[in-house]
Design a protein around this nucleic acid. Sequence first.
RNA 1: GCCGAAGUGGUGGAAUUGGUAGACACGCUGGACUCAAAAUCCAGUGCUAGCGAUGGUGUGCGGGUUCGAGUCCCGCCUUCGGUACCA
Length: 947
Amino acid sequence: MDYNHIEIEGKWKKFWAENKIYKVSNDTTKPKYYVLDMFPYPSGAGLHVGHPLGYIASDILSRYKKMSGYNVLHPMGYDAFGLPAEQYAITTGVHPASSTDENIKRYRAQLDNIGFSYDWDREVKTSDPSYYKWTQWIFSELYKHYYDLRADKACPITDLINEFCKTGNAKIQATNTLDITFSAEEWKSFNIAQKEEILMNYRLAYRKVGYVNWCEALGTVLANDEIKDGVSERGGYPVERKPMMQWFLRITSYAERLLNDMKSLDWSDALKTMQANWIGRSEGAQMFFDIEGHDLKLEIFTTRPDTIFGATYMVLAPEHDYVDIITTKAQKEDISQCIKLVNNRSERDRMAEVKDMTGAFTGAYAINPFNGDKIPIWIGDYVLKDYGTGAIMAVPSDDERDATFAKKYNLPFIDVVDKSSYPGASLHDKLGIIINSDFLNGMEVPAAIQYMFDQIDLKGYGQKRVNYKLRDANFSRQRYWGEPFPIKYDKEGIPHLLEKSELPLLLPELSNFKPTTDGKSPLAKATDWVNDGEFTRETDTMPGFAGSSWYFLRYMDSTNDDEFASQDAVNYWKEVDFYIGGAEHAVGHLMYSRFWHKFLYDKGLVPTPEPFKKLVNQGMIQGVIESIYLKKSDLVKEFYSEEIALSMENEDFALIPIHIDFVSQYGTPNSHLSLEGISEFIKWRPEFANASFFTSDGIIENGKIISGNSGVKLLTKSEVGKMSKRYFNVVNPDDVVEKYGADCFRMYEMFLGPIDQSKPWDINGIDGVSKFLRKFWNLSHNEGVLMISEDAPNKEELKVLHTTIKKVTEDIERFSMNTTISAFMVCVNDLRRLNCNKSEILKPLTLLLAPFAPFIAEEIWYQLGGEGSVHHAKFPTSNPTYLVEDTILYPICVNGKKRDEVEFSPDETQQNIEQAVLSLESIKKWLEGKPAKKVIIVKGRMINIVI
RNA sequence: GCCGAAGUGGUGGAAUUGGUAGACACGCUGGACUCAAAAUCCAGUGCUAGCGAUGGUGUGCGGGUUCGAGUCCCGCCUUCGGUACCA
């Protein structure tokens, strides 16, 4: 028969499922290899062609490793809690659990269509109670631990309590947010509430006030993503930052280890740099300033204590606790106005808009401990509450942001660093000589910094300290569709953990998913659930990253009901050997997962300190967003071709996203709706049936041309962006698979380019891969009939085969899948040229192709009489004896430009080569009779003549 | 703003360690087969001058290092990802 992908793929898909050929055992003598994909969020738009990019690459690697003798764990699951399902529930009333299940079913069918080798018996779903039982359990454990700096690991909070009873807290070295010391006697005298409050400052999961984006009009907390230009995306209502008591995870305890342990990881430098910058370690000084007229010390952190004589004002974050206390009556109005303004700005805007800062004077003064000078205390939006101590000393002469702020509010500058001997140095460089600074005058900056560390410590003004930009993770969400906290509060508001036996704490059933009017999670409405005798339950839920921070461990033993995974399973699979996922997770998800893993490592529950040994970020497959220009008007519905719309400078246009299927030449500058496209658009959007369409070639009304010719083009706006339901640009892999087959789809996605590069989806070019598969099939088939030769292969055929084996193996190892596809194409082209249909060549070639195109390979393997499934066979290895070259073709360059090429034997002497080359006519003419200045011969590479 | 990445023919891309720029494909042009079309096959295809031989030029822009730069260094531009509650 001719190559028929529908028949072949249907047949083997069934066979593989029935025979469970991808079942993975935890019990084997083979070496293990763990290949992991970042699991998807099952969105309502279904899987699009971007998702499988990484999945296909990792599937190829898994199959290759399996054929190379490893026991490979290659699982898949769903990150099933999330905001979109809840939004959908709010608008439609459909329970998130049922829409999520629907979506998962669809995802599963789509994944199955592509021929992945997942062991589906290990599937996990974060919203499944049997899974989130263990998410809740890990939270409980975090609650029950503190970070001990002497042991440099998490230790049970009961140990800490014991120490408190014995010696109080003075000698304890643990990460905490407590600013009092107490003796053992004092500790014993505290009541339960006081004790619990103190312990909260040590626990790895703890409560404190955090800020949320509150939208009064919508009566809900908004995600940053739901805010555009400072107002809610839905409705455009104002958003303010509102304080709320919330749970946090003390990830900062692990900052140093998260930073240092990266060194051993096989991750890209770019990714490591991003994580390191996110952690943001900096060495500086913690300093205390007296505040005039108050019995308060203002704590600041600075990396530049050497510039203290240039500190002309102090800045507190507007949320700083002291603001209310120190603000003078006269300044109250200014300060509250400023806070109001700042509350309407997102944190990101505050950091980004360095050109437009907002601040106000509190009326209070700090005292410079070194010279007793009064320094005015301001508040400013460019100082963030959670970074450092939420307060800085501002040195406008040596810091750009301080300078901008100082200029706006006319605050003085004092130059303290003379950079004149360092011409190229910018303000960021810690270079220069200190001036106007009393005892520091004349010192070089780095020396002055060190000197000040000593002075601050000596005089008791503070101490040297390491600060991190990394902040503790806000772990509370005022939402329904997430893990409930295993926490209940007693009448005094003291939190209590649920017992392990009470887990999982199930989400209560609800029919209305809107938040309560006071901004609490919808769970607060389930009063039967909330009230548990004397206790009331926590009504916030956990964020999206909770379930995804440990799912890779659950796959190892996904159905275990007694542990998150058995110790046997965890000790066998250890860590993920190869992890692939989107670059958009480069900091968030990876940081949280590493943190949780380290915590479990501290508890001796996992054998490695890091979860992901090697990591590759795949690029995004982007979509094309096509939209048309609608004139903003209540009276008429008029669309204008892009070139006309852009020329009408006085008119306002709305961009209406349109389905990409209607657009001709989509994704190009010439993208447009033809007459046919316009009528399809009208059919799709009947509300525009009577609209007018103005183009340069004619006008259309009611779907008919009223002037001009039928070749009209309504030019559209074409942008590259996310594939998303809202842009009507989602390309479903099912359609491609149906037309070309899964093998072709897999190979084409790989052929598109390097795995880590983003690019817009483009179907042009898939024919090349489709042709390749037919050519491969026809190597063993003639007019649909199997036609194979059992003759021994010749030297040339063996060379083609073994060159391909070498290239493909090397390229899989360095995860360069696009070049493997080219290598296959070259190989098949060569074998066709040689008219080779020999079994001894085609069988190894089929094995080689099996990880890439599993269906056609299985069929050909079967037809060639291969034993068992091709996917259980052994991957071929390259024999170097077939690859030896008799001669090397050298390019001959003159001044680096290629002018000729000559073949030499690999062991030809330098002199002979030089002589032969210089006597070539094609070279002589460049020399013009003069001798060459230099002849460079790079053995096996090239020859360059310098004239 | 800050952090990270990318930019090579008409298009996707290749060039793995500083050593022949454009492999492999798509598209396009011409040809074969066909009543015709599709499919398939063959040839050509960076731009530019030239009938040609051959030459010039060419990897986002501007400089630099080197016998030699897509690759290294300095300064820009554009696009994409992240920026702590999208996932």
